[in-house]
Amino acid sequence: MTRAANGSPPLDTDPCPCRSGDGFGACCGPRLSGDTPAPTAETLMRSRYTAFAVGDTGYLLRSWHPRTRPRTLDLDPEQRWLLLEVLRTERGGPFDDSGVVEFRAHFRAAGTRGSLHESSRFTRVGGRWVYVDGDIADDRR
């Protein structure tokens, strides 16, 4: 079972961490459980954000392209993901084979706030969307 960072599983009626406006059970929950594949690159990116938020390393590895996937993945248990902003999408629709999603994900770690600004690349493998890699933007001012 997928567990939230605080150790308790998200309920189907809880707001989805990706902030789609839907409950976890109607949004990313079925994707993390493997019941429903992501229909678009953006949907996969949102479900991967949710997997980071709830600490589901299994889903993160399964949804990563086999060519670029790390052997293991260790998440920082002290890092809390707070907010996802989807900034731009390029292709990645139901009839595309590749796509890009630019996003900013806000977090808190070691008592300070930060954000990750990335343009992620996605492709289909065996008919399913997977994360390939991404370019991290330098937002320092």
Score class of each variant (00 low, 15 high):
A26D: 13
A26G: 14
A26H: 15
C27H: 09
C27L: 11
C27N: 10
C28T: 13
G29H: 06
P30S: 12
R31S: 11
R31L: 11
R31W: 07
L32E: 00
L32C: 06
L32Y: 02
S33E: 10
S33Q: 13
S33G: 12
S33I: 11
S33D: 12
D35P: 10
T36K: 15
T36P: 08
P37Q: 13
P37R: 15
P37H: 14
P37I: 12
A38Y: 13
A38W: 11
A38H: 15
P39I: 13
T40M: 13
T40E: 14
E42T: 01
E42S: 08
T43E: 14
T43D: 15
L44K: 14
L44Y: 14
L44M: 13
M45C: 10
R46P: 06
R46W: 08
R46Q: 10
S47R: 09
S47C: 07
S47H: 08
S47I: 05
S47T: 09
R48Y: 04
Y49V: 04
Y49S: 06
Y49H: 07
T50S: 14
A51K: 05
F52H: 09
F52L: 10
A53W: 05
A53R: 08
V54C: 11
D56I: 05
T57A: 13
G58Y: 00
G58I: 04
L60K: 03
L61M: 05
L61S: 06
R62E: 12
S63T: 14
S63V: 07
S63P: 03
W64D: 02
H65K: 01
H65M: 00
H65N: 05
R69Q: 00
P70Q: 03
T72F: 02
T72V: 07
L73G: 07
L73S: 04
D74R: 12
D74Y: 03
L75Y: 04
L75T: 08
L75A: 05
L75K: 07
L75R: 06
D76G: 05
P77A: 02
P77R: 02
Q79K: 15
Q79R: 15
Q79M: 12
Q79E: 09
Q79V: 12
R80Q: 08
R80V: 10
W81A: 04
L82E: 09
L83H: 12
L83D: 06
L84D: 02
E85R: 15
E85G: 14
